[in-house]
């Protein structure tokens, strides 16, 4: 990605993010978003992040496709996140599982 593309990407995301954070405050003045919009926005996080997980693992530069060790790491990270409710533990446990998985498989 060159400098011009970087500037464009950062500019558009920064402005778009500010708009999402500011427009209701500046325009709604106490009114509420339509119910369908509220319902759709509720689950943006899980939907987008799970898509990102799948694509980033599948297209890793280290190997084509998804490695067994990577799947094990994701499962362990998910279990630990649910158990400890803590991202530090989840990421750390996932990395350890990945290293063990890479050694085993």
């Amino acid at each position: 990605m060159n400098i011009m593309e970087t500037v464009l990407v950062l500019g558009v995301i920064a402005i778009g993010t500010y708009v999402a954070r500011a427009v209701p405050i500046l325009m709604l003045a106490g009114r509420v978003l339509p119910v369908p919009v509220q319902l759709a926005l509720r689950n943006v996080g899980p939907a987008v992040l799970s898509a990102l997980i799948v694509v980033s693992i599948s297209t890793s530069s280290f190997s084509p496709g998804i490695q067994v060790a990577e799947v094990v790491a994701l499962v362990v990270a998910g279990i630990v996140a649910r158990w400890r409710r803590n991202l530090i533990w989840a990421t750390g446990a996932g990395l350890v599982a990945l290293w063990i998985g890479l050694w085993l498989f």
Partner: peptide, 20 residues
């Protein structure tokens, strides 16, 4: 060799699990 390129996916996994 530490494969920290996988760390973002692991963190996203934690975020997804916490959001569900």
């Amino acid at each position: 060799s530490w494969r920290l390129d996988v760390a973002p996916a692991l963190m996203f996994t934690g975020l997804v699990v916490l959001a569900i």
